[in-house]
Amino acid sequence: MQVHITNLHGQDSKSTAQRAQNMVTEIATKQLDFNEMGLYFYPVKSDSPDKLSGRLDGIISALNPGDVVILQTPTWNGTHYEHRLLDKIRGYSDVKIIAFIHDVEAWMFEGMEFVLDEYIKVYNRCDLVISPTEKMTARLRKHGLTVKKVINQEFWDHPVAVDTATFPPFNRVVNFIGRGKKFDFVKNWSAADVKLILTDTDTGWGAGKNIEFIGYQNDADLVSRMHRTGGFGLLWSENPLWSEYMKLNVSYKLSTYLAAGIPVIVEPDTPQADTILAKKLGLVVNSLDEAVEQVKQMTPADYQEMVVAVEHFAQLIRGGYFTKRLLTQAVFDLFYD
Rank of each mutant, 00 (worst) to 15 (best):
G233Y: 01
E238Q: 15
A260V: 05
H227I: 03
P271V: 10
P263T: 01
S255T: 14
D221P: 08
N249C: 15
E244P: 05
R225A: 13
W236F: 13
K247Q: 12
S237L: 09
N239A: 14
A260P: 05
V250R: 06
K247R: 12
P263S: 07
E238I: 11
F232M: 06
W236T: 06
P268D: 11
M226V: 10
Y252G: 14
P240G: 13
I262V: 10
L234P: 00
G231W: 01
L222K: 01
I265L: 01
V266E: 05
I214N: 03
K253R: 09
I262Q: 09
W242G: 10
A220S: 15
G230Q: 02
A220R: 06
W236S: 09
N239F: 10
S224W: 00
Q272C: 08
D269I: 02
D219M: 13
I265V: 07
R225C: 08
G215L: 01
V266Y: 02
K253Y: 07
G215F: 03
V264P: 03
T270M: 09
P268F: 11
D221C: 05
L258R: 01
I214E: 03
V223E: 04
S243F: 15
Y257G: 11
S255L: 12
P263R: 04
K253T: 02
T256W: 04
N249L: 06
D219P: 05
I262N: 08
K247L: 06
F213I: 03
S255N: 13
G215V: 01
D221N: 12
T256N: 13
H227S: 08
S237I: 04
P263H: 04
N239M: 09
L254H: 01
V266A: 00
G231N: 09
Y216Q: 07
P263G: 04
G233F: 03
L222H: 00
S251G: 07
H227M: 05
G261R: 00
D219C: 04
T270I: 01
S251F: 07
G230T: 04
A260D: 10
